[in-house]
Computed example of a mutant assay.
Amino acid sequence: MRLPRGVRTTIRLTDRVAPALVARVALYLWCRPAGARRPAPIPGGTRWTLPVGAGHVVGQTWGSGPRVYLVHGWGGHRGQLAAFVEPLVAAGYEVVAFDALSHGESGPGAFGPRQSTLPEMAETLASVVAAHGAAHAVVTHSFGGTTTTLAILDGLTAARVALVAPMADPLPYTRDLAAVLGFGEPTRQRFLALMARRSDRPLTDFDVARGVETHDGPLPVALVVHDTQDKEAHLADGERLARSWPGARLVTTTGLGHRRILRDPDVVAEVVAHVTAP
């Protein structure tokens, strides 16, 4: 997150006299997906719109066969996973991709334009799967791995899941937000309380690595792919999630970063091989 000159100083000074106000600002920024508002859709396929809650989700479907869902990350859109569509369709799968609420072409979520939460994204995936049919596999990127894992812990079923550059637990990243904005630990705790109230879930639910480690039900066969130089989702997240997930396999790359990893031919081939494995 880049701030205009002087903003951090203003927030730091305001934190001394009005920490509740700063906590509300932090909540707004944390729940605000950054990125392209109207990115170009993936070529081809059948475009669809699905009512979800008070809003609507826009997506596309290609091919026929067992269904593979593509789930983008925070501030992302379905077009970022375009490289997976053609090889999966060629392998005999139906591919379903969509923009989460308050992302891409989809409408606002329950908290208004450009606002969303992890649980809302997880519930949106569950709604899309309920409408389009059972998932054979889910291919995810970044925060989409977190939301998909939360959905799985909440009962979503799939045979396989591929987690590209996932976050194991978003909460440690709130310390990064505090450092960037310049507010202290007491205000961070206020912000976490506001976030728990908005999400209507205990914050421990967001530690999905711990969730899969203690889960007493079946889990999909998991592949975790992470770049050693990822500056947005820490490599330690991918490593921790792979360790926690029973039977998961970790594949690392170097030099692809957080987004180019989605277009790398070797990564695409690795993910497709995982999805299509017997």
Results as ranks from 00 to 15, higher is better:
175 R>E: 13
193 A>W: 04
165 A>M: 09
128 V>M: 02
124 T>K: 02
141 H>W: 10
133 G>R: 09
194 L>W: 06
184 G>A: 14
175 R>F: 12
187 T>Y: 00
179 A>L: 14
184 G>V: 06
154 D>V: 01
148 T>C: 03
161 V>D: 12
189 Q>Y: 08
141 H>S: 15
146 T>G: 03
146 T>M: 05
169 D>N: 13
170 P>C: 08
123 E>T: 06
173 Y>L: 14
120 E>H: 08
136 H>L: 15
147 T>W: 02
173 Y>P: 09
148 T>R: 02
114 R>F: 12
178 A>K: 01
180 V>K: 10
174 T>K: 02
194 L>P: 05
162 A>G: 06
173 Y>W: 09
159 A>W: 09
127 S>E: 15
153 L>E: 10
174 T>N: 07
127 S>Y: 11
125 L>S: 05
119 P>V: 10
156 L>T: 05
169 D>F: 04
127 S>M: 11
156 L>W: 05
159 A>L: 15
143 F>P: 04
168 A>D: 11
115 Q>E: 11
195 M>C: 07
182 G>M: 11
117 T>Q: 04
151 A>D: 13
123 E>D: 15
167 M>N: 11
132 H>V: 11
119 P>W: 00
151 A>H: 06
176 D>F: 12
128 V>Y: 01
172 P>L: 14
126 A>I: 03
183 F>I: 00
128 V>E: 03
133 G>D: 01
189 Q>W: 09
186 P>N: 10
190 R>G: 00
146 T>D: 03
171 L>K: 08
156 L>H: 03
141 H>C: 15
122 A>E: 02
155 G>A: 03
142 S>Y: 02
118 L>G: 06
126 A>W: 00
152 I>W: 01
165 A>S: 13
153 L>R: 05
131 A>P: 14
174 T>D: 07
164 V>P: 09
128 V>F: 01
190 R>N: 00
189 Q>F: 09
163 L>T: 09
155 G>N: 04
191 F>L: 11
192 L>M: 04
178 A>Y: 01
191 F>V: 08
176 D>K: 07
170 P>R: 00
123 E>S: 15
135 A>R: 04
137 A>W: 07
136 H>W: 15
154 D>W: 06
189 Q>D: 13
153 L>C: 12
